[in-house]
């Protein structure tokens, strides 16, 4: 055998700082994990969860009616207040609106998602994708502003109805109880339209994702077996798209529940949950009641998510 010094098989420690640190972290992967996880977990845990917890805690305090100061004693009184007629109305109104918005969002979103998933190809696929993403991501306030322009008495909607000689239809609609009002921009109809517009894009993507997983030949098989388009839709397409719809509805429902800006700008003076929270913590200075109000959407969404999970909606996210 040759007497030449062959290079070592095990190379020595690298003397540089990074070399030594690298060795150390390799030997102690838990330290590495702690370094990676530490900052985000501390940030979210302390700043976010801490605040959230403190807020929930406050809902168990009450406000002293005379001094207006917070009475730091554990009580359910604030929650009882939630159930008073006026407050309960607010909750029912908000949940109803969220449900209706969700249903209509699904109706409008489905054809878009279906077309994008099944028929759009190549360049059109990209067009559809951006056509959904741009409105989804574009400025929330500007979108609301656009509807203020549309719904205004002198705006495009009135103009269009006039041109079509259908103004009587609009007036008839506005004269209906509850959903009508002085003008669209101060009616529930207006609030509803803006809600649907702003949150509907969140419904499209999950439905599209669910539909893209349906094999094309399943639909053909159904029509081959003599299914009419309606039957194919009812028995094949809809059940398969349902997890996507439920996933999308999580967004539309939750976002509508918590919003306070849309009903403030377009709508009647009757409050939604978000507005109630805002008013309670701001002008009324009743932080405990505001905190108790925030628990309502959390509980409703908790129940909703639990049901959605049982329907397998999370696979479509």
């Amino acid at each position: 055998m040759s007497a030449l010094v062959t290079p070592a098989t095990i190379l020595p420690n690298r003397p540089s700082l990074t070399g030594r640190l690298s060795d150390f972290l390799w030997k102690h992967p838990h330290v590495l994990l702690a370094i990676l996880l530490g900052p985000p977990v501390l940030w979210l845990g302390i700043i976010y969860l801490g605040s959230l917890f403190a807020l929930l805690l406050q809902s168990f305090f009450s406000i002293d009616d005379f001094s207006g100061l917070i009475n730091y004693e554990f009580t359910f009184a604030t929650y009882m207040q939630l159930l008073s007629d006026a407050n309960f109305d607010i909750i029912v109104r908000t949940v109803t609106m969220a449900a209706v918005v969700t249903i209509f969002s699904a109706l409008i979103a489905f054809p878009i998602a279906y077309y994008a998933a099944r028929y759009a190809k190549g360049k059109w696929k990209a067009v559809f994708y951006l056509g959904i993403m741009l409105p989804l991501w574009s400025s929330y306030l500007v979108k609301i502003y656009a509807w203020k322009l549309i719904l205004a008495k002198e705006g495009i909607l009135t103009w269009a109805f006039t041109k079509l000689h259908l103004l009587w239809l609009l007036d008839g609609w506005l004269s209906l109880p509850i959903i009508g009002g002085n003008s669209l921009s101060v009616s529930y109809t207006g609030t509803f339209l803006v809600f649907v517009y702003v949150w509907m894009p969140f419904m499209i993507l999950p439905i599209q994702a669910a539909l893209e997983r349906v094999p094309g030949n399943l639909i053909e098989a159904s029509s081959d077996l003599g299914g009419t388009p309606q039957q194919t839709f009812r028995h094949v397409l809809f059940p398969l798209a349902l997890p996507g719809i439920v996933a999308g509805s999580i967004f539309t429902f939750s976002l509508t529940l918590g919003d306070y800006i849309i009903p403030q700008i377009v709508g009647s003076s009757r409050l939604f949950i978000g507005q109630a929270v805002y008013a309670q913590q701001g002008t009324a200075g009743n932080i405990p009641l505001a905190a108790a109000f925030t628990v309502v959407p959390i509980v409703i969404m908790g129940l909703y998510l639990w049901m959605a999970k049982r329907m397998g909606a999370f696979d479509a996210l």
Partner: peptide
């Protein structure tokens, strides 16, 4: 090659 390998990271093995 006669050298102990336990605890040596992959990047220091030939």
């Amino acid at each position: 090659f006669g050298e102990t390998a336990e605890g040596v990271p992959p990047y220091r093995r030939s």
